[in-house]
Simulated scan of single mutants.
Amino acid sequence: MLWVFLAAVAAPLQVARNAMQRGLVGDAGPWGATLVRFLFGLPFSILIFTVVALLTRDAKPDPSLRFWLGAMVGAIAQVAATGFLLMAMRRSGFAVASVLQQSALPLGALLGWVALGDDLAAHAWSGIALATVGLGVLSWPRRDQMEHGLAGGLLGLAAGAGFAVAFNGYRQAGLALDPAHPIFSATAALVVAQVMQSAVLTGLLAATRPEALRAVATSWRSSLAAGFFGSLASACWFAALALSPAGPVRAVGLIETPIAAAVGHRLFRERPSARQWVGGLLTTLGVLMTTLG
């Protein structure tokens, strides 16, 4: 059950990283803030992997095509998902967007079942269905916010879809590298993915939005903190995914929902509506059912 502990630790770390990235969106833009997560997190990820490698001297990694393909797909999907999430936060608010991205729960479970053969109990699938209904209630905007809110909802759901692909890609990479040492495999996949993400995003922004790179460099203190929390969160997520299918891991991670609501109220003065509270409650109940499965 180590994966439960790892996912539970990753959730609040992820909220902290998202809050710091949200504060960088104004100057750096969503893709500059996305770069922060990977570029400034890379040194910490390398440090984590170094420690794990020193403690796992009998590891026998097999960097096969399956490993590289899983890491590459996961890296690309995670970049897109993070950008969509930050754009959704600007439109729908920090707390609501944080919950909308949890559409990764049903989508991740379905992808794991189809692509990796992950098997879940019947009541776990029922919990996933209930959580999906809760997400639908949560994402539906008020009539007076239909155009603006619907765009934010779609961006949040797109982020969830991207994270679902990323979770399963990273799970496949971890299983392929060295199944006997899942923590070693997970941290190795994390470093490989962040190198890819940092190189691609830096190159694209240098060519299209050099001012975003300057904004990231100027705010290096908060960027470094976001990278630190992001690296720790990703290491925990990757390790949990190497030990368990994506659906249950994402379900435990939904404990970030009340944390995100508290942070959104405290830092960004957001007040969820009654309907959003109902949607959040349905989602939470679905999560509990899924975790039990």
Rank of each mutant, 00 (worst) to 15 (best):
A206R: 10
T56P: 12
W140D: 12
H181Y: 05
C236I: 11
V73M: 15
R269F: 04
A242G: 13
P272E: 04
I183D: 00
L241Y: 05
P210I: 05
F38K: 02
G230N: 02
G227C: 06
L155R: 08
G127W: 07
L65W: 13
P179A: 03
L155W: 04
G32T: 03
R269P: 01
A188Y: 09
M146W: 00
Q101S: 09
T257S: 12
L130Y: 10
Q14G: 15
T187D: 06
R17C: 06
W237F: 15
S244C: 15
A188P: 08
P245V: 10
W277Y: 11
M196S: 13
I46Y: 06
A77K: 11
V9H: 08
I76V: 13
L47V: 15
Q194C: 07
F163M: 13
A104R: 07
R171M: 11
A225Q: 10
T34G: 08
S222I: 15
T290L: 01
S234W: 11
D27G: 06
Q145V: 03
V114I: 14
A33F: 11
W125S: 00
V4Q: 03
V133A: 08
M87N: 14
G134D: 13
Q172E: 15
A77V: 07
L55A: 12
G134C: 05
P258S: 07
D62F: 14
A262D: 08
N18E: 06
W277H: 10
R171L: 11
A11N: 05
P30Q: 04
L213T: 07
F268Q: 07
H181C: 11
M20W: 04
R271L: 07
F38P: 06
E147L: 14
L285E: 01
A7C: 12
S126I: 14
Q145S: 09
G83V: 08
L177A: 05
A215D: 06
T208R: 10
A97T: 09
T50Q: 07
F5G: 15
A260H: 00
F167S: 07
L267H: 04
T284K: 06
R266F: 07
L281A: 15
G117S: 11
D27I: 04
A95R: 03
F184K: 01
G149M: 02
P248K: 03
A77L: 08
A71G: 13
A189W: 09
P179Y: 12
V25S: 05
R171Y: 08
A226P: 15
P43I: 13
F38W: 10
A186V: 08
G74Q: 06
V52F: 06
L120N: 08
F238G: 02
G280E: 12
V4T: 04
E270G: 03
L254N: 05
F184C: 03
V216P: 00
I76H: 02
E256Y: 01
L47I: 15
L42Q: 02
G152D: 07
Q78I: 00
F94R: 04
L86F: 13
R214Q: 10
S273W: 05
G203I: 02
P43S: 02
S231F: 03
A207D: 02
L86I: 00
T283R: 00
T56E: 12
P179N: 03
H181V: 09
T284W: 09
V195Q: 13
F49T: 10
R275G: 09
M87G: 15
A10T: 02
V165M: 13
G74A: 11
H123Y: 14
Q21K: 06
K60N: 11
V99I: 10
R142M: 01
A151P: 04
S64G: 10
D58A: 00
F49P: 04
Q197G: 07
L243M: 10
